[in-house]
């Protein structure tokens, strides 16, 4: 049975929240909703505090005529990707970026807006590759390794389960690779990942799963796997094109 939208949101948003990177300060309370599988007004209040993800959910919902930003289709669109993303008017995405980022990024805003005009859609991979400052740090040899790790862990990855050990899974996936010019997917590696916040939930060897930081988020259907891969590669292509033509320094606003 499919998870409800709010509980799907918990699965994807819990990892960075648990690490203290975003969302409400009380990650235990947030994670408890995922463990208990309950949904109430308290969860909505906590979800609104994810000020990176929440405006995207609002944008997708408004742009597709869906009333609830935590509707499962909306939540899936932002973290995994689905056809909703291709139906949102470009002007609506651009206006949202203008409202959310122009006051904060100053002269860098043109660089961000350019990403929208080149086809960026409100998917988490656009936020990671097109909005966060880490791509710009790849051009600094001293900082590139850490930047690559953050980019790889912060994006939603996909991988195939090779073993399940209680609350830990072994997953084979392709990490990001930076060759000094292009950001691509590298050769497959095997990694350990924590089970989803609610537990392994029947995930078995051979399943394809999504990962965020060092947690497994959810089992992926074939459709979801194709969508996650497709939107991720789309935004990688955009950022590579921009790095190639503008140089990483522009991403930092130093060019």
């Amino acid at each position: 049975m499919s998870l409800s939208g709010p509980l799907l949101f918990v699965r994807y948003a819990y990892p960075p929240n648990r690490l203290g990177y975003c969302g409400p300060a009380d990650s235990a309370a947030f994670g408890e909703y995922g463990v208990a599988g309950t949904v109430d007004g308290g969860l909505l209040q906590l979800a609104r505090q994810f000020s990176g993800a929440w405006p995207y959910l609002e944008l997708i919902a408004a742009g597709t005529g869906i009333r609830d930003p935590l509707d499962r289709r909306v939540v899936e669109a932002y973290w995994v990707g689905n056809r909703l993303l291709d139906t949102i008017p470009l002007t609506q995405v651009a206006d949202s970026m203008e409202e959310r980022f122009r006051p904060r990024v100053g002269t860098r805003f043109g660089w961000l807006a350019d990403g929208v005009l080149q086809g960026g859609v409100p998917h988490h991979s656009f936020h990671v590759f097109g909005v966060y400052p880490w791509v710009g740090l790849l051009g600094d040899d001293r900082k590139a390794d850490k930047a690559l790790t953050v980019l790889d862990r912060c994006r939603i990855r996909w991988g195939q389960v090779t073993a399940v050990h209680d609350r830990q899974l072994t997953v084979r996936s392709r990490p990001l690779h930076w060759d000094g010019c292009l950001l691509t997917l590298g050769a497959p590696v095997v990694e350990f990942a924590e089970a989803p916040v609610a537990g392994p939930d029947g995930i078995a060897v051979g399943d394809w799963v999504s990962l965020h930081w060092h947690w497994v988020c959810d089992r992926l259907t074939g459709r979801q796997l194709r969508a996650l891969r497709g939107y991720t590669l789309h935004h990688l292509e955009l950022v590579n094109h921009r790095v190639e033509h503008s140089g990483p320094a522009l991403a930092l606003g130093t060019g």
Binding site: Y21, S51, G52, F101, R104, V131, Y132, P133
Partner: peptide, 8 residues
């Protein structure tokens, strides 16, 4: 947290 937050 979108683009960083000040901390002391």
């Amino acid at each position: 947290m979108c683009l960083g937050i000040p901390a002391r």
